[in-house]
């Protein structure tokens, strides 16, 4: 059953007319994007930089307006932001003057849940991401990986139907990234959350995704979706899975779809 359904989504960025200069052309960022995210799955979208995958996530989040097609969450049409979707941003977006506890509780605060109650809930999710000892710290005392754990806990705390993640691990070092990736899978399974995960890394897309969607270079559209067979049994999904033949087979498949798109994106960049 599908939880999120995007139908023929189009997004155009209008060019601003510069005073005295020639009018620039509008940019078509997304064209005819059709995709489903099934209830309980992790869907990863991988694409070359600038393909509009982050724009698509912002549209699902209700933060950016689209000018064609429609996106549904369940049977409700998305027309603005809402607490049925939890977002994890690449830049963490932690509130620097609030403690870890207050940051995680912030979504609940926005819902108007009283303080004692939201602290109990927030502590449960801080525990889930393994930061119980750090609930009184402020963000600038934490490492990048810890900050992203806080952001994940915050997005989960108000119990959204789906987690929207925009290249969340792109800014952390490799060892930390591997741990966070495995933990994300554990947490998503434990909390039975549906996840829409944007990345530019093929490895990450194949490792995390139950399915991987490949997005074309601008204008972005979904070129293909690939089922990741081995993900059905989760105990197999450890760091060592990267060296199995099944993993590299799917990896090659995704890379093949993506290669021509990356070439196109590069050519487009050079011709500008």
């Amino acid at each position: 059953m599908s939880l999120i359904r995007a139908e023929a989504v189009r997004k155009t960025y209008r060019a601003r007319k510069r005073f005295g200069g020639a009018a620039k052309q509008d940019t078509l960022a997304l064209e005819d994007v059709n995709i489903e995210v099934r209830d309980g799955e992790i869907l990863t979208i991988v694409g070359p930089s600038g393909c509009g995958k982050s724009t698509f996530l912002d549209i699902v989040a209700g933060l950016v307006e689209h000018d064609g097609g429609a996106v549904y969450l369940g049977d409700k049409k998305i027309d603005g932001p809402g607490l049925d979707r939890g977002i994890v941003f690449q830049g963490y977006a932690l509130i620097p003057w609030k403690t870890v506890l207050d940051n995680v509780a912030f979504g609940l605060e926005a819902q108007g849940i009283p303080k004692p109650e939201r602290q109990v809930i927030a502590r449960r999710y801080i525990d889930l991401v393994g930061l119980s000892k750090f609930e009184d710290r402020t963000p600038h005392e934490l490492s990048g990986g810890m900050k992203q754990r806080v952001a994940i806990a915050r997005a989960l705390a108000f119990d959204p139907k789906v987690l929207l993640m925009d290249e969340p691990f792109a800014a952390v070092d490799e060892q930390t990234r591997e741990r966070l990736q495995l933990e994300l899978v554990r947490i998503a399974r434990e909390t039975k959350k549906t996840v829409l995960f944007i990345t530019h890394s093929i490895d990450e897309a194949v490792l995390l995704g139950d399915r991987v969607a490949i997005m074309t270079s601008r204008p972005g559209t979904i070129k293909a979706t690939v089922d990741v067979e081995f993900s059905r049994s989760d105990d197999k999904r450890s760091a060592s899975i990267r060296s199995t033949p099944a993993f590299s087979e799917i990896r090659e498949l995704v890379a093949g779809y993506l290669k021509s798109e990356v070439d196109k994106a590069l050519a487009a960049e050079q011709s500008r």
Partner: peptide, 16 residues
């Protein structure tokens, strides 16, 4: 701006 984006995504009112 990211904090403003966060606030919007959580549905905060303009006053909040």
């Amino acid at each position: 701006p990211l904090l403003i984006k966060l606030a919007r995504s959580l549905g905060l009112s303009r006053l909040d």
